[in-house]
Design a protein around this nucleic acid. Structure first.
Lengths: 332, 332
DNA sequence: CTGTTAGCGCATTCAC
DNA sequence: GTGAATGCGCTAACAG
């Protein structure tokens, strides 16, 4: 139960702990015989270096934190996996943290990152202001914000142009089905949400249809949100001819309701999603949606983080926008 | 950049580090005024206790590791989230680790758990033998294996009765559609996979149809696996009347192919899944599948782990089987 | 090529 | 109610 330490190994092998340390780190040459002997002893004793002690000594944990709002939205696992694919080979581990879009969780994780002296954080924030990331950067933690840029800081950012993308789908719907349109948004406060809402309103305004406030519903970024939203919409006197959903899961919920009521999609109501996750091609009808490449977003975030962690880049924040694409399938 | 330590706070506040330590731990009474003063100073300086140092001193990290084979299969995020819901309130953090069902990753993570002196591990292993968990338990790490029990150890286990469940769906299909049946399995070696295969064969044998080896395909536990499997099956001279898929994602892929070829499900081919994840009710036709409650599995695993970590339980391994249920929908 | 030693930041025992 | 001193296990000067 008492774990084997480097000292036990040194003692058993009849060498100093320094030598054992160097056998493992390779930071200085060790006599081949001694080396092999030490390795044998370590093996026999079942020695595992204590990563905690090493972290304390080196003040680096070789780990990063990936903070996401909803791990059950498959967009995020795909994205997270992609980050891991980038930073893993460089020797970094990662903590995948789920906030459920709660402010308290967001703050707690950020605090944790500081307490644990993590090397980096890739953050998708829903509640907390960008400013909350500053203290981390000041502590020397590399951070990539997924979303808006953080001014005057060394914080990098990656995002999609959510506003433009949503305006694009909205325009597509407007052109095809006219001005009877609604948006089921995912969240009142989250930046992504606001961006998408703005895009929706931009397009409506451009089209000449002053966007009715009542045309925007705030539900959750999930299937249940879509169900609630669509139900509300269909209870109206004049249900919309087309519905923009702030993500694919919402769209799935909306389609559920529409079909349940015997409405044909898109003949009776057109419905679009956002993200283009796997679901998009599994539902019937297949979703017309915005392809927002999660893996690519993750890869880019990982790359930014990595170059900063290794010191390859050390200037002001870099800001990259991942291109999106409207994918027209069957739901609109 | 140089982080504030407990010493900085003590110095600034004009007290000893002992006092500061106790202000934060509450492990011994501190004069109220002193306490408030210290807290103010700490606040002002932006002090964050160093979790690494604390871990080293206390030799506990208050962290567990959740190891899953495929984070993009929504079964696992749901399951993991559920574990977190159980252990989080008790003050434990968790690392969510994705192995992609690779042996090397499985071993690496297990090693990591030892190196980092984690308090617990909840393990879904696909490649590595149960025996690989023993060293962890010997190091005093609490472990819950999701799958088979580990004999003569303090390792708990949770599982579904995969064999019985698969036999059940298979029998259902056999009764309804006769002996022309096939299995698209997910993996050649994984224990879950073997269990499900055995269940399939049990049912076939019972039915009197000696299971043809050729009736079992080994693909991946994902949509692409289902696509490959179904394609192979349909190229046969006499394609099966019913197809058991080892999980829902495989079933989705299989349905994709069937429909593409103009086959009606279930009129031309019946298809079943396993897990009953969200997808199951999103595909058309809705999946007939085995409801394997991921969140419940996670909650139970979390509970077992927690009671062991807190010392509430400290005997031999406990083994719990989570009930499953055949859910008949539209695909068979 | 190898060993001695001083911390990394904290919790805690022992003294006051 | 408070402080001084020790050590958790490791790495990296520094010294041979």
């Amino acid at each position: 139960m008492a774990r084997i330490t480097i000292e036990d190994v040194a003692h058993e092998a009849g060498v100093s702990i320094t030598t054992v340390s160097h056998v493992f780190s390779g930071h200085r040459p060790v006599n081949t015989e001694t080396k092999e002997m030490v390795e044998r002893v370590a093996q026999r004793l079942g020695y595992r270096p204590n990563a905690i002690a090493r972290s304390l000594r080196l003040s680096t944990s070789q780990t990063i934190m990936i903070v996401v709002p909803d791990i059950t939205n498959s967009f995020y696992p795909e994205y997270a996996r992609s980050i891991q694919d980038v930073i893993g080979p460089a020797g970094y581990h990662s903590l995948l943290c789920n906030t459920d879009a709660r402010e308290r969780e967001e703050l707690t994780f950020l605090d944790e990152a500081r307490s644990r002296r993590l090397n980096g954080v890739v953050f998708v924030g829903f509640r907390v202001s960008n400013e909350a990331l500053r203290p981390l950067a000041e502590d020397g933690i590399c951070v990539v914000n997924v979303g808006e840029a953080v001014d005057d800081s060394k914080i990098d950012s990656v995002c999609f142009d959510d506003r433009a993308a949503t305006a694009e789908v909205t325009r597509f719907l407007l052109d095809r089905y006219g001005p009877s349109i609604a948006l089921i948004d995912g969240d009142g406060e989250a930046p992504v949400s606001r961006q998408r809402r703005d895009g929706f309103e931009d397009a409506c305004r451009d089209f000449g249809a002053a966007p009715d406030d009542a045309a925007v519903l705030l539900e959750g970024f999930n299937r249940a949100g879509g169900v609630r939203g669509m139900t509300t919409l269909l209870e109206r006197e004049r249900p919309p001819r087309a519905v923009v959903c702030a993500n694919d899961m919402i769209a799935v919920g909306a389609i559920d309701v529409a079909r349940e009521r015997g409405l044909r999609v898109p003949e009776d109501v057109a419905i679009t999603g956002f993200d283009d996750v796997d679901l998009a091609t599994i539902v019937t009808p297949k979703l017309t949606t915005v392809h927002a490449d999660g893996p690519r977003l993750g890869a880019e975030a990982g790359r930014l983080l990595l170059t900063r962690m290794t010191g390859e880049h050390d200037g002001a924040g870099r800001h990259v926008v991942i291109p999106h694409e409207l994918v027209v399938r069957d739901s609109a």
